[in-house]
Design a protein around this nucleic acid. Sequence first.
DNA 1: CTGTTAGCGCCTTCAA
DNA 2: TTGAAGGCGCTAACAG
Lengths: 339, 339
Amino acid sequence: MEAVTIKDIARMAGVSCATVSRVLNGSPTVTPELRERILELCRRHGYRRNLLARGLSSGRTNLVGCILSDLDNPLFADMALALERFLRLRGYHLFLCRGRVEDGNIGRLFEFLIGHRVDGIILASSSRQAPELIRRYIQYIPIVLQGGLSDSHPDLDIPSVYVDSEAGGRAAAEYLFRLGHTRVAYLGARENNYSHLARQRGFTGAAERLGMSVRTFSNEAYSSTMEVGYHLARRFFLDPFQETAVFAACDTIALGVMSAAREFHVAIPGDISLLGFDNIIYAGFPHIRLSTLDHQARQVVETAADRLLAQIEHPEAACTQPVMIPPVLVQRDTCKPRR
Amino acid sequence: MEAVTIKDIARMAGVSCATVSRVLNGSPTVTPELRERILELCRRHGYRRNLLARGLSSGRTNLVGCILSDLDNPLFADMALALERFLRLRGYHLFLCRGRVEDGNIGRLFEFLIGHRVDGIILASSSRQAPELIRRYIQYIPIVLQGGLSDSHPDLDIPSVYVDSEAGGRAAAEYLFRLGHTRVAYLGARENNYSHLARQRGFTGAAERLGMSVRTFSNEAYSSTMEVGYHLARRFFLDPFQETAVFAACDTIALGVMSAAREFHVAIPGDISLLGFDNIIYAGFPHIRLSTLDHQARQVVETAADRLLAQIEHPEAACTQPVMIPPVLVQRDTCKPRR
DNA sequence: CTGTTAGCGCCTTCAA
DNA sequence: TTGAAGGCGCTAACAG
């Protein structure tokens, strides 16, 4: 049960720990045969590096922390997966933590990750409170925000990467306009969320310019679940409506709308067109075929990670210019021309 | 940027590091005023424990590793969440890793977690290969399998906690029988998965005893996604069928069946009844209302974690008796009496 | 190419 | 109640 240490191997090989360490770290300055002999000993005795010791003495752990609010949102699950893959290719491991920025003890999570000496942190959140939170810790550790910033006062001092929600909102309005819709609804607006705010602004702004009318239904919750979408849609369907199209703040909301629509015998896209945002895996599913804007999740995640690693590996070359990735319209079966 | 250490605090307080350490660890043998003074200094200077050093020297990290194959399966996402909550209450943190037991380099993941000196590992998997894998590492670290074992050769030497799939399968058959169904289909059987195997055995066994006919559709993939369910159901619906009820291996499969059913204009439960397994969050959703067997995910997870912590905290009191949790039938709207 | 030495930050005896 | 000293396992100069 007692773990084999570098010292044990050194003794068995009749060399010093330094040499064993060198072999383990792939230093080229070791005689090939010695290297082989040591490696063989390690294998035979099941030697396993103590990563705590390594981290402590080297000052680096090759660990990247990521904080996100939700794992049940398929978009976040995808992002976590993409992040892990990308990090692995770059020689890092992911330390995934669940935590909402709005939570009182989110600070603990940062303390925890910093305490474990992760090399950097990605905070996936578009919450209004995110920038302030980051500012509190970025003096101690590289952090990248993966999520939106305010447009009126963009926090330009913190590095961030996010989907261009405003452009997405605009594209949504233009697309629906091209299909002939002039009365539309926006479901799921979140006040606390910069990304949603931008989406809404892009959408309503473009819609108004195009002479469309927009009715907005806000989501007071701190998350955008299918369930929220369902209840919003219920409110929408309950009264007579003139709109011919709905733009949902995100796909989970849209799925909730589809559920409610079925219950209310509202045909999609027969009676009303529906457009989502994110392109989660379910959106492309045979029966669903939701038209939506692709979040470019992989690209967003990889760009964020890339910036973080750059920051970690070259702290001097700081660059905090926000990066925005344009979403991509995916036309499927839930939007059709208004006849 | 340089982190404050215990030594800095000690110097500022004019005491030794040992005293600071004692305060940090809540030792009662320190003068209250001294304690306060030290705590204040820690606060003022933003002292943060180095968890690597702590782990290295104390031999414990209060970290529990968990390996699971999927985050996009809502059941697993729920489990991860429940696990994290439970661990937190017990003073531990979760180190979540994604990895399939069937993957060639799953061993790396174990090495990684052990290297980080997590105090124990929960492996969430019902794969046939899981027991062998665990046996390889359990000599180095406490491990609990959260997933099924073989019934013919139950690996009684490894601690495990899982839902009683066989009883669930039996209950499913009996329920459908009570509703008058005599010809049923089982969709999504996985050869490689002990849990699915047990589910199938329980179902077909009971069905045969009750004089029902069962047609089985196997899932060759290593996961049970909605997509798999969709394709299985397509195969089922494509030819004329006599069955009046379908038992899906799990809810994601069942959701896929519902999708396909809509495409093929098969009414549920009008033309065919559908029963799932797991009771994922979507199953209870207004429009879906899937009848299913609740996996008791929280209880399973907490029991598994509890056993692991027991193992960690009292290594001598080993007990490897497998624990099975009976699933609970949830009657909703997708099963109805055969007329 | 290899060994020696000195930490990394913390915990934990053992003394005082 | 507190301090001194050694060690956890590994890395990283600096010598040789």
